[in-house]
Every structure is written in C-alpha cells, then in structure tokens.
Design a protein around this nucleic acid. Structure first.
Length: 115
DNA sequence: ATTGTGACGTTGC
DNA sequence: TGCAACGCCACAA
C-alpha cells in the first residue's frame, strides 16, 4: 500500500531521522513537537512501522521518559538497541540511558534554534 | 460509526 | 516508593 506523506507515521519518521548521532529523545518530546505531548503512544505506534520503511529510521535513539529502552525487543537481536546507542557514545546500563538529560535531544528546541 | 490496540506519560492511591 | 488506572490520538478491522 502506498503510504501517504501526511500521516502521523511519516511525520514521526522525519523527526526521528533528524536526531543527531550520540543523542536520544523521548516519545513525548516527539509527540510534543508534532503538536500533542500526550500523543506519545502514537509515536511508539508509528516507530513500530519504521522498521518496514526506507531510509532507515534511527528508532533506537528514541527512549521513553525514564530513559528506558522500552522498544529494544523490537530491534534485531544481533544489533540490539543498547549496543547501537553505546556505539554512538551513549552509556547504557540495565537497559537504561545514563545521564539522559545530557544526551537528550529535544526536537521542539533544536529544530527551532536550528543550531 | 464503533471497537480494539499500542516501542507513553501523568496522576492518584 | 511502587503499582493501577486514565488519558490521549491515529489506524486497522
């Protein structure tokens, strides 16, 4: 089926692809940038489909508000979410991001400032 | 149109 | 401090 380019799913893909390496963001932050902070669930729902599209979406850089890698089980077993993040320089412990506030990347801020 | 589901977030107990 | 429930929006059946 041809996906439209106006769906929430596409918007999420666009934002997630803008996440710089070595940075992470949360579902709520993306949802907020898209207009509704409460639509965090929709972000997760959309990211679930990001595996089937191209270009690849760095969904591994999206964690929940606690910095917990909730979606790690949705990734390839050989390239786990935690390993990818570590590879980018993000410390992970117990499926959780350390110093989340340091590596956190808020689209509603960085995209506006256009740093 | 209605119902069910979802990689969340917040509030209440 | 930990768990339960609600809210919330988009989409498929």
């Amino acid at each position: 089926m041809m996906p439209k380019n106006d769906t929430f799913f596409d918007l999420v893909c666009q934002v997630v692809r803008l996440i710089p390496e070595g940075r992470v963001t949360s579902y709520g932050a993306i949802g907020k940038y898209l207009g509704s902070v409460k639509s965090a669930r929709m972000v997760g729902w959309a990211l679930n489909k990001t595996h089937q599209i191209h270009p690849e979406v760095p969904a591994h850089r999206v964690v929940n508000r606690n910095g917990l890698l909730t979606g790690k089980y949705h990734f390839s077993i050989e390239n786990p979410m935690a390993q990818r993040l570590k590879m980018e320089g993000i410390p992970i412990a117990n499926n959780q991001v350390i110093d989340l506030d340091v590596y956190f990347w808020d689209p509603s801020i960085h995209l506006n400032l256009e740093s």
